[in-house]
């Protein structure tokens, strides 16, 4: 079994050595193959021209809805807002009960309990509650604070934790510190799934994104996630494609499968379908499920629903025929 992106000697099982010291980890991460930005962007753009019609479109739209982490992360969030979002996630299209439910409701930690209870009341217990944590979105807090933040969220019922990495430490080259932080947060998660947010817009280079991907996966991330949605550049097709290649290579090297979550800026059904094409042609069937791929989004859902209505009725509806929550 070969390792497409891993350094030449990084066969299965040998990766534990690379986290024994800061120097070893740096050598490993900097030894990953480089990324040619022009080529990566050209590949993502080429896959963006796939023409997804009729049955394929219907499949993709329903799959995309089922992969949404329906998100509200505002200072102005209230229990009422969160309950309303939960109702939307449980019954996305009141006029068509065949529309699938979303994968999760994504909120700040103090709203996790509200979301958990609201979903239970709605009979939608299979929808997970995802809570951001670790001083989201900047991550600028002391480690005990980040861990307490995580434990609070889990105690409040969060099934999934979306943590942010310390970009400052990463950019300063303190990779082992970032690694240890992810490991500690993972331990604090207990049974909850851990998504690790890189904030690709702040890492800035594709080489950094590939390194962050391997770093997080080595530290035990269940999912790697592009961004917080709070900076200028969030998920893009190229940076997501790069992370898809990283999880593919990581599974080839270690046997462990990791999920991917692009977040921020994906607003239209057309965009969502393009991301699913990236997954399909890079990873195939094994990742085409909400267990392994998610969209972090809020307004995307309504556009998917409008496209879904168009496919079933043959007519375009309008924003008055989907609910505002």
């Amino acid at each position: 079994m070969s390792t497409d992106a891993a350094p030449r000697d990084a066969g299965r099982g040998s990766l534990s050595d690379v986290v024994t010291s800061d120097a070893a980890l740096r050598r490993f991460l900097q030894g990953l193959p480089g990324v040619d930005a022009v080529g990566l962007e050209a590949r993502a753009a080429a896959l963006g021209t796939r023409s997804i019609k009729t049955t394929a479109k219907a499949y993709a739209i329903d799959l995309a809805i089922s992969m949404i982490d329906l998100t509200t992360l505002e200072g102005a969030d209230t229990p009422g807002k969160v309950r309303s979002l939960c109702a939307k996630g449980a019954n996305p299209d009141p006029g068509d009960r065949s529309a699938p439910r979303v994968a999760a409701i994504c909120v700040y930690p103090d709203m996790a309990r509200v979301a958990k209870e609201a979903l239970a009341e709605l009979g939608a217990g299979e929808i997970n509650v995802a809570s951001v944590a670790t001083a989201f979105p900047a991550g600028r807090a002391a480690m005990p604070v980040k861990l307490a933040d995580t434990r609070e969220a889990v105690a409040a019922g969060a099934d999934e934790i979306d943590m942010v990495i310390d970009r400052g430490a990463f950019l300063a080259g303190r990779y082992l510190q970032v690694f240890e932080e992810i490991r500690e947060v993972k331990a604090a998660c207990g049974g909850a799934h851990l998504k690790v947010i890189f904030e690709n817009g702040e890492l800035a280079t594709y080489d950094n994104i590939r390194r962050a991907s391997w770093l997080a996966m080595l530290a035990g991330a269940d999912f790697i996630k592009t961004s917080t949605g709070k900076v200028g550049v969030n998920a893009t097709p190229p940076n997501t494609l790069l992370m898809l290649e990283a999880v593919r290579d990581f599974r080839a090297a270690t046997g462990r499968q990791v999920g991917v979550k692009p977040a921020g800026g994906i607003r239209t059904a057309k965009d969502a379908v393009k991301y699913l094409v990236l997954v399909n042609e890079t990873l195939g069937d094994d990742w085409l499920s909400p267990d392994w791929f998610r969209f972090g989004a809020s307004s995307l859902l309504n556009d998917l629903l409008m496209q879904r209505q168009k496919l079933s009725t043959g007519r375009y509806s309008g924003p008055d025929y989907v609910t505002v929550d």
């Binding site: 079994m1 070969s2 796939r50 023409s51 997804i52 019609k53 009729t54 049955t55 394929a56 479109k57 499949y59 993709a60 799959l63 080839a252 699913l276 399909n280 042609e281 195939g284 069937d285 085409l288």
Partner: peptide
């Protein structure tokens, strides 16, 4: 040697 089967779940409909 390391097969990656074409997707069966997400099969593209003809788009002539």
């Amino acid at each position: 040697s390391q097969p990656s089967q074409p997707s069966k779940l997400f099969a593209y409909a003809p788009a002539p």
